[in-house]
Amino acid sequence: MRPFERFRGVVMPLDRANVDTDAIIPKQFLKSIHRTGFGPNLFDEWRYLDHGEPGQDCANRPLNPDFVLNDPRYANAEILLTRRNFGCGSSREHAPWALADHGFRVLLAPSFADIFHQNAIKNGLLPIVLDEAVIDSLFARAGGEQPLQIDVDLEAQQLRPSVGEPIAFPIDAFHRHCLINGLDDIGLTLQHAPEIAAYEQRRREQAPWLFASAVSA
């Protein structure tokens, strides 16, 4: 995973609550067996006027001019500002893959669905939870002629908007550590292989049935 470095980016406001994973990346694109290439189908049903299928060249598809992602002001947006319960629905990691593939690096919302939040962190995407009032005030600033920009400093846990006061944000210490250092979770866990083996041995004595095979005889 690429280490998360401080950057300044444009904010795209998506003024909807409960944006679900089916909206972020519709099911037909889940048939891919790869991790990349989902960006052109991010928010597919809102973004295009036709029905999308995997393998299509999206460059020639009719765009929905009313959808914010197609607004030229936000063409290079790296920060997504949205409403409560973003990412609810399925566990599909294709949702953060699509957001990251499109170029988003930070998500701002009053709350995120649990599995989506976890999946975002695993992909170097930073979900930041802010008070509803702070989110409201960012929406008020983000829709102008000049798009709002924010300097995102994970090290200092601070957002510095181009308009307005700096905003402190909370983040789990372990998540911050992993994002800043671009750490591979599996590598970290495998360092504890002897403890896992000791746990297994202890558990096998207490509850041997848990170690019966899932494979039929």
Binding site: S91, R92, I115, N119, F174, D185, I196, E200
Partner: peptide, 23 residues
């Protein structure tokens, strides 16, 4: 019993464990 993303599927395959904060 809970749902996980693909990175966590891989993590469980490789380690039989997951890194979790207690909900």
């Amino acid at each position: 019993a809970f749902g996980v993303g693909t990175s966590e599927v891989e993590h469980v395959l490789a380690t039989q464990c997951l890194l979790q904060r207690k909900p």
